[in-house]
Design a protein around this nucleic acid. Structure first.
Length: 255
DNA sequence: ATGGCCCTAGATTAGGGA
């Protein structure tokens, strides 16, 4: 039975909640991972999701970050944050099981600029993530890692590779950290399905970024070898509607 | 022309995002 797993950075769940509910109604994914809730767990308005028949678990935070998993079946063994990184106050990771499928949903740090203090935080966070994913793969052969990775995997994923060369989201250390996840056995589902296609998942609000297709592909769905890839793509429609997030949902269908 | 837009907190602007 194929299952659709979706990742969507909503840039404020408060503003985008009705869009999320519309998306669930029209696409009925098995699991939808959200990033940048910008809400505490207490502030999340859960009733509408529950009334529509969805389960919702969150790792919220005031003003910044925040991640959620929304699902049709009840999540089991929910883990918030990255184990062994529990002093980190930033809400950037949540994992849960749905049957024998494990889903890890991430909001990878942005990093601000190469060399910045936040850049070093990003690289350190990615190292801890790699160790965590390695352990997860041993425990859960059927693993999907989704999220806003804030890394464009390759130049084809960048509208202007020369302008972005060695810049934040495209630097070699960031791409190497992503490659380390691939080396564990994870596959970038969109790129596996569409080896030559340039398709972005984020466009700057400024400069008519969407109209001119000045974007990046930084929202990824990674799958483990025990899963069969059916299809993967990026949904443009939510990015094109009124008052959108600056990210579009990235999805993978597996069985 | 190195900013443009959007979000939050909570102020009459600043910080963060990518």
């Amino acid at each position: 039975m194929p299952m659709k797993i979706v990742s969507w950075n909503v840039n404020s769940l408060n503003v985008r909640q009705s869009q999320v509910l519309d998306y669930l109604e029209s696409h009925h994914p098995a699991v939808l991972g959200l990033q940048e809730l910008k809400q505490t767990d207490e502030a999340v308005k859960r009733e509408a999701f529950i009334q529509a028949g969805w389960h919702l678990v969150t790792q919220g935070q005031k003003t910044y970050n925040g991640v959620a998993l929304i699902s049709k079946s009840a999540p089991e063994n929910v883990v918030r944050g990255i184990p062994n990184n529990e002093d980190d106050p930033q809400a950037r990771a949540i994992a849960a099981s749905y049957g024998d499928l494990r889903v890890l949903n991430l909001y990878v740090p942005n990093g601000k600029a190469v060399g910045d203090e936040k850049y070093h935080y990003k690289l350190g966070w990615l190292e801890k993530l790699q160790a965590y994913v390695a352990r997860l793969l041993q425990e859960y052969p059927k693993l999907v890692v989704i999220g806003d990775f804030n890394i464009a995997p390759a130049d084809i994923d960048v509208h202007d590779p020369k302008a972005w060369q060695d810049k934040i989201l495209c630097s070699a250390p960031e791409r190497q950290a992503l490659q380390a996840l691939f080396d564990l056995g994870l596959t970038d589902a969109f790129r596996a399905r569409h080896p030559e296609r340039q398709q972005f998942s984020w466009w700057d609000y400024r400069m008519g970024g969407l109209r001119r297709n000045l974007g990046l592909r930084i929202d990824l769905t990674l799958i483990s070898p025990a899963l069969q890839l059916i299809d993967a793509d990026i949904d443009m429609a939510p990015r094109e509607q009124e008052r959108p997030s600056d990210h579009a949902p990235a999805w993978v269908e597996i069985q």
